[in-house]
Design a protein around this nucleic acid. Structure first.
Lengths: 208, 208
DNA sequence: TGGTGTGAACCGATTCACAGCA
DNA sequence: TGCTGTGAATCGGTTCACACCA
């Protein structure tokens, strides 16, 4: 990668990557910025600009070689390795994430789940073992998971996240509708708050 | 509202609103842009700018009257009314959303769920009835739901969303990792794709 | 001819800095 | 003195427009 890709650009790259996946492995075929733009809801200029962050990889008059571009994006998103996730909190949402097909189809693998409820510990759901959260550190170390999906109640979110950082997790996707979560410098963190998304929609409904 | 609030501003307003909720109803107390900024992870200037979209509502030297600001934001997000949701698809994720406490605490009410699986239809989960998706139009009309949470498999997402629009739903939060969804002009639409969020984190892990 | 790559122009959002008010 | 409100400056991302290349 050459310069710094804007955060919204990363999102678009993920869309491009998915679209190329859906085309299958077409040897020696090309796709234009225009096509890619239409398929993902962007403009052609935007697509070209995004892709030049990876150098001059298109061919004037032809477009981008599908196979090459696809591999490039897989590489950028680490899709050529197994991308390991752990799920913290095996409640309704945690279970839903374990079963969620979207992770599997995108080369993510949920390698462990954790809970503190003795009735859940030891169970295996969709081939994922539910561990005692006490064992977070050893299991994370053993599996080498990079990203944690946090689905615990809001009042234990910060505590659990602190433990995850100690255990060596490098990125956290937090589903708990907690107030302000802090993580140390260098740890990637992202909230996914479904009620805030609904708030935004309702706001738009009322205000424009 | 006076001018147009940027989309990221709406997100921040939602955070302010939540923080004020957490303070409780403190009659005649004030909060400064500085405090609100720290509590929500923003800058004081940003907070003030956001709030001036609602006019000059602060008091120089004192700050913003908590009660007044809280009510203003509740009004903006429609939190004084019951904000009605329907859930489409009563699989793992749909069920998790029905049980999700974040909606309830934010004055959202899930008024109905839908599925096409006969084994689920007629059941009541967390006080929410699961209807046959054939009856979408009549049930949506009767309940007056404004927003739909779509949790069906990716291959039926577009079809279901078309039906929702016909049924009169005005905003859609789509959890299906579908390619490109289109909705008519005027319908508010938002994707929540958890695997893309994970992609972003993994990208950051690998590229900076 | 068709489509990339890219500097320049544009645009919107954030930050700054300070005047003004309680 | 403390904190708001806001125009001006700045920043970053998107779009434009066109030179260039197969």
């Amino acid at each position: 990668m050459h310069r710094k890709m804007p955060s919204s650009g990363i999102y678009r790259l993920a869309l491009y990557s998915r679209h190329l996946d859906s085309l299958g492995n077409r040897e020696d075929e090309y796709i234009s910025s225009q096509e890619l733009a239409e398929a993902t809801g962007n403009t052609a200029a935007q697509v070209r600009k995004d892709l030049t962050y990876y150098g001059s990889i298109g061919e004037p008059g032809k477009g981008y070689k599908i196979k090459k571009l696809r591999e490039l994006l897989m590489e950028a998103f680490g899709k050529k390795e197994v991308r390991k996730l752990v799920v913290i909190g095996a409640g309704n949402l945690g279970m839903a994430l374990i079963a969620h097909s979207g992770f599997r189809t995108q080369q993510f693998k949920i390698v462990a789940a954790f809970d503190r409820d003795a009735r859940k510990i030891g169970k295996v759901v969709e081939n994922v073992m539910i561990y005692n959260i006490q064992n977070l550190e050893t299991v994370v170390a053993r599996t080498g998971a990079d990203i944690a999906l946090v689905c615990v109640p809001y009042y234990s979110a910060q505590k659990v996240i602190d433990k995850l950082v100690l255990a060596g997790v490098k990125a956290i996707l937090n589903f708990a509708p907690a107030g302000r979560i802090t993580v140390p410098e260098g740890i990637k963190f992202q909230n996914v708050d479904m009620s805030i998304e609904a708030d935004r929609l309702y706001y738009l409904l009322k205000n424009d």
